[in-house]
Amino acid sequence: MTDNKSFRFKIKDNLLEFKINTKIYSLSAVYQAAYLFLDKVYILLDGDPQKEVVVIMKEKSSFASASAKAMADKKASEDKEPVDLEKIAGEFYNELLNQLLREKVSQTNAKIREYIVSQALYNAVPNEVDELLKEVEEEDWQEDPLGIAKTWEEQNLEGKKSKKGKMSKKGK
């Protein structure tokens, strides 16, 4: 279960329902989290992706959720624990948090990863990347407008230096 206090849900007619604020969690994160639970519960999404997505969960009947192997094995089927919707909803919320972190890590490293792959593969597959490089050169990549060729420390240091510079100018 999640320990996050902002997680609230309601249960009605064997359906568990909760809302997700899409200002915090992207629709893509909701899809990815849902994907991991499709073999455990039925999920339907509704609502407005600009504001709130509603997640509706329904327990899978023991018949539907049992694998072919478990169905053939009577004992395994008898021992199967009933699906705890509340527990799964909690796990779903935790998975949303994981997805959120994945997206943030991915976004903040997107440019540097792209740069690394293109640089690494330049030597690996000359023909393909020569063409790519030609395209990039046409875009005047050497100016490095994104700052992707610099380490974060260089960027940081420069930022501080320029701030100092501005301040001293002001002082004059």
């Binding site: 899809y31 990815q32 849902a34 994907y35 499709l38 039925y42 999920i43 339907l44 999404l45 329904k58 899978k60 009947s61 018949f63 539907a64």
Partner: peptide
Amino acid sequence: KNILSDEFANYVLGLMS
């Protein structure tokens, strides 16, 4: 019969991710 609509909905959602 009892599970088709739910399984169908899950399948569609799986295609979205």
